[in-house]
Design a protein around this nucleic acid. Structure first.
Length: 460
DNA sequence: GGAACTCGCCAC
DNA sequence: AAACGTGGCGAGTTCC
């Protein structure tokens, strides 16, 4: 196990390496940004024109007139929850009625769609404006900090390059198109696959989790999906069936990962029902036209198995949760309990990388911090090696996003960079830290020559 | 007029 | 027992 001095050395070397990354900076397409910002102005104005013909705008204008601000949550709250007598869907942290996207969609008020469009395009515009704000000679030089985060992860600012849209296809395309390689070069991104799950295993050492990680033919998310959607007994692999990949994704993002972070069955059931099964407000499963499996709505299948309302599904997910922790990953569960008990006794804990956390933390924080921190330290160690061993290359490390490294890569060096990163991350890392007892894997994707960060294809 | 706070929302 | 972890940032708002 690593000492406190080892932890210090990692931060020291990390700061030095990241200073090189900052100096390298990344090229942005200034003319593209300017043109797109204007286009977004037009899109925002278009959405505003449409909003102005709706019930929502009518009520908003009636109360606020010339003081109306589309981005004011307090104004929107008054209009919706006082004037239009909408029933609040949930509260904010500060105890107010929420006006976030989820709550707004629940209201069913005419005009909400246009307001959300305005919000979205404004948000995208802010990213492009942020790039231009920090542009010098066609490049930006985002800062990377190692001293700001409780878990000893990194953070990024000025601009923050660690939260550029990816999930929403349109927002992703618009924002990432702005990030381009040096002339004649390519953007190369290499990321650890599933590193937080792997790192959790080096702490809890749950044998069935380790089996999943070591056996590439096994699939934890698919197996859990069978429980979640009552599909046990299939004779074909879930992934190979129509709708199977979607069910697997629902299981992964709606149940497995939230459970690892400390979520519980009530919210998991609700989110799976709303986001994947498309459970309508009537709470009638049959009315849903959500994801299909083998051509039929999965909601219909669940109805045929006696799940007729959300409360039935909650009860089912409670059993899935009990099975998940009690039968599938009991050792993981026991680790969380004992890790938390030790924290309660001592007031702190130490990561395998030597970093120490002392303070007042909740249970989920205590069990999540070591995983999140240690996973990042694997990336940081790799990045340090890459920066130091590519000195004098035409390719440069230009960024880092918690479990991935970004290069501005010369075409002649792409293959070498991929090979070097694989060697460092998949072989040398585990030699440096003997406690890495599960396989580490990286995946690479690359843009075309002179192509932007928006169009990345997998490297075989 | 600026500091501090809340809210909403993007990433991993 | 507790109930999804970590950030940065823009905008609005409140406080001094």
């Amino acid at each position: 196990m690593a000492s406190l001095l080892d932890a210090y050395q990692l931060v020291h070397d990390g700061v030095v390496a990241l200073s090189v990354v900052e100096r390298n900076g990344m090229r942005i397409d200034v003319e593209y940004c300017k043109g797109k910002i204007d286009w977004l102005d037009w899109k925002i104005a278009q959405a505003e024109r449409r909003l102005k013909a709706t019930q929502l705008y009518y009520a908003w204008d009636a109360r606020y007139g010339s003081k109306l601000k589309y981005s004011s949550a307090p104004q929107l709250r008054s209009v919706l929850y006082a004037d239009l007598h909408v029933k609040p869907f949930k509260q904010t942290e500060g105890g107010e009625e929420s006006a976030d996207e989820e709550s707004l969609r629940q209201t069913g008020v005419e005009g909400i769609d246009h307001l959300l469009k305005m919000r979205k395009y404004k948000k995208v515009q802010d990213f492009l404006r942020g790039f231009l704000r920090y542009e010098i000679d066609g490049r930006i030089h985002p800062s990377y900090m190692l001293h700001t985060v409780t878990t000893y992860r990194s953070s990024s600012s000025s601009p923050n390059m660690q939260n550029v849209p990816k999930r929403d296809a349109e927002a992703m395309e618009i924002c990432r198109r702005a990030i381009v390689p040096s002339l004649g070069c390519q953007i190369l991104e290499i990321d650890f696959s599933g590193i937080e799950v792997a790192i959790s295993a080096v702490y809890h050492k749950d044998p069935s989790m380790i089996r999943y990680l070591k056996d590439p033919t096994s699939d934890m998310h698919a197996d859990t999906a069978l429980d979640l959607f009552m599909l046990q007994g299939l004779n074909t692999k879930l992934k190979d069936m129509p709708g199977g990949p979607t069910l697997r994704q629902a299981s992964k993002n709606g149940f497995v990962f939230p459970q690892f972070y400390g979520d519980y069955y009530i919210t998991c059931a609700f989110n799976v029902a709303c986001n994947w099964l498309k459970l309508p407000q009537t709470r009638d499963w049959r009315a849903g036209d959500g994801i299909k499996f083998n051509g039929a709505p999965i909601a219909g299948h669940l109805v045929s198995r006696g799940i007729e309302a959300l409360s039935d599904y909650e009860e089912h997910v409670r059993k899935v949760e009990n099975n998940f922790w009690g039968r599938r990953f009991p050792v993981y569960k026991r680790w969380r309990d004992s890790w938390h008990r030790d924290y309660q006794r001592t007031g702190g804990f130490e990561m395998l990388t030597g970093f120490r956390c002392f303070g007042v933390f909740g249970r989920n924080q205590v069990t999540n911090y070591p995983v999140q921190g240690t996973a990042f330290h694997c990336l940081l160690w790799t990045l340090i090696q890459l920066v130091n061993r590519t000195r004098g290359w035409r390719s440069k490390v230009i960024g880092e996003i918690h479990d991935s490294v970004l290069f501005d890569a010369h075409p002649d060096e792409v293959a070498e960079l991929v090979a070097l990163t694989k060697q460092v991350a998949e072989v040398e890392l585990a030699k440096n830290w003997k406690w890495i007892i599960v396989p580490m894997r990286v995946e690479s994707s690359v843009s075309k020559i002179d192509g932007s960060w928006a169009s990345m294809r997998t490297v075989e």
